[in-house]
Lab assay of single mutants.
Amino acid sequence: YFQGQLNAMAHQIQEMFPQVPYHLVLQDLQLTRSVEITTDNILEGRI
């Protein structure tokens, strides 16, 4: 994955969860590489 793709995914998640800091979303995406998994992590309070 290149950074631009991760940034696009992070923006997509931020639209759904504007209360979660962008850098935390991006940090999780770098591990998961998945909008779905990061979204689940937010919903389950891991982020």
Score class of each variant (00 low, 15 high):
1 Y>V: 12
1 Y>R: 13
1 Y>A: 14
1 Y>N: 15
2 F>Q: 12
2 F>D: 15
2 F>V: 12
2 F>H: 13
2 F>R: 04
2 F>A: 09
3 Q>W: 04
3 Q>L: 05
3 Q>M: 06
3 Q>E: 15
3 Q>P: 14
4 G>M: 10
4 G>K: 13
4 G>S: 11
4 G>V: 11
4 G>I: 11
4 G>F: 08
4 G>C: 15
5 Q>T: 11
5 Q>R: 06
5 Q>V: 13
6 L>I: 11
6 L>V: 07
6 L>T: 04
6 L>M: 08
6 L>N: 02
6 L>F: 07
6 L>K: 02
6 L>H: 04
6 L>P: 03
6 L>A: 04
6 L>G: 02
7 N>L: 14
7 N>V: 14
7 N>T: 12
7 N>E: 15
8 A>T: 09
8 A>V: 09
8 A>F: 10
8 A>Y: 10
9 M>S: 04
9 M>T: 05
9 M>D: 05
9 M>E: 04
9 M>R: 05
9 M>Q: 06
9 M>H: 06
10 A>H: 02
10 A>F: 05
10 A>E: 01
10 A>V: 10
10 A>N: 01
10 A>W: 06
10 A>T: 04
10 A>S: 04
11 H>M: 13
11 H>D: 11
11 H>I: 12
11 H>L: 13
11 H>C: 13
12 Q>Y: 13
12 Q>H: 10
12 Q>P: 01
13 I>T: 01
13 I>K: 00
13 I>M: 04
13 I>G: 00
13 I>D: 00
13 I>H: 00
13 I>E: 00
13 I>P: 00
14 Q>I: 12
14 Q>S: 12
14 Q>N: 12
14 Q>R: 11
14 Q>H: 15
15 E>Y: 09
15 E>A: 12
15 E>H: 12
15 E>F: 08
16 M>V: 08
16 M>I: 09
17 F>N: 03
17 F>H: 06
17 F>I: 02
17 F>L: 03
18 P>H: 03
18 P>W: 05
18 P>F: 02
19 Q>M: 11
19 Q>W: 15
19 Q>K: 12
19 Q>R: 09
19 Q>H: 14
19 Q>A: 09
20 V>P: 07
20 V>Q: 03
20 V>L: 10
20 V>H: 04
20 V>R: 00
20 V>W: 08
20 V>C: 12
21 P>I: 07
21 P>M: 06
22 Y>V: 13
22 Y>Q: 12
22 Y>K: 13
23 H>T: 07
23 H>W: 13
23 H>E: 15
23 H>N: 09
24 L>Y: 06
24 L>R: 05
24 L>W: 08
24 L>N: 06
24 L>Q: 08
25 V>R: 00
25 V>H: 01
25 V>G: 01
26 L>C: 12
26 L>Q: 04
26 L>E: 05
26 L>T: 03
26 L>N: 01
27 Q>A: 13
27 Q>N: 08
27 Q>L: 12
27 Q>V: 08
28 D>W: 06
28 D>A: 04
28 D>E: 03
28 D>T: 02
29 L>T: 01
29 L>H: 00
29 L>E: 01
29 L>V: 05
30 Q>I: 15
30 Q>R: 10
30 Q>P: 01
30 Q>T: 10
30 Q>G: 07
31 L>Y: 10
31 L>F: 11
31 L>E: 11
31 L>M: 11
32 T>C: 05
32 T>H: 06
33 R>F: 13
33 R>L: 14
33 R>V: 07
34 S>K: 03
34 S>N: 07
34 S>Y: 03
34 S>G: 01
34 S>A: 04
35 V>E: 04
35 V>F: 08
36 E>S: 12
36 E>I: 09
36 E>Q: 12
36 E>V: 09
36 E>C: 10
36 E>D: 10
36 E>P: 07
36 E>Y: 07
36 E>W: 07
37 I>H: 08
37 I>Y: 06
37 I>M: 11
37 I>F: 06
37 I>T: 10
37 I>Q: 12
38 T>W: 03
38 T>M: 03
38 T>A: 01
39 T>D: 01
39 T>A: 09
39 T>I: 15
40 D>W: 11
40 D>C: 15
40 D>S: 14
40 D>Q: 15
40 D>F: 12
40 D>M: 15
40 D>E: 13
40 D>T: 15
41 N>A: 03
41 N>I: 02
41 N>Q: 01
42 I>Y: 03
42 I>L: 07
42 I>F: 03
43 L>Y: 06
43 L>T: 07
43 L>D: 02
43 L>N: 07
43 L>E: 05
43 L>W: 05
44 E>G: 11
45 G>C: 08
45 G>D: 05
45 G>F: 04
45 G>H: 05
45 G>S: 05
45 G>M: 05
45 G>E: 04
46 R>T: 05
46 R>S: 04
46 R>H: 06
46 R>P: 01
46 R>C: 07
46 R>K: 10
46 R>W: 07
46 R>Q: 04
46 R>L: 08
46 R>D: 02
47 I>G: 03
47 I>F: 07
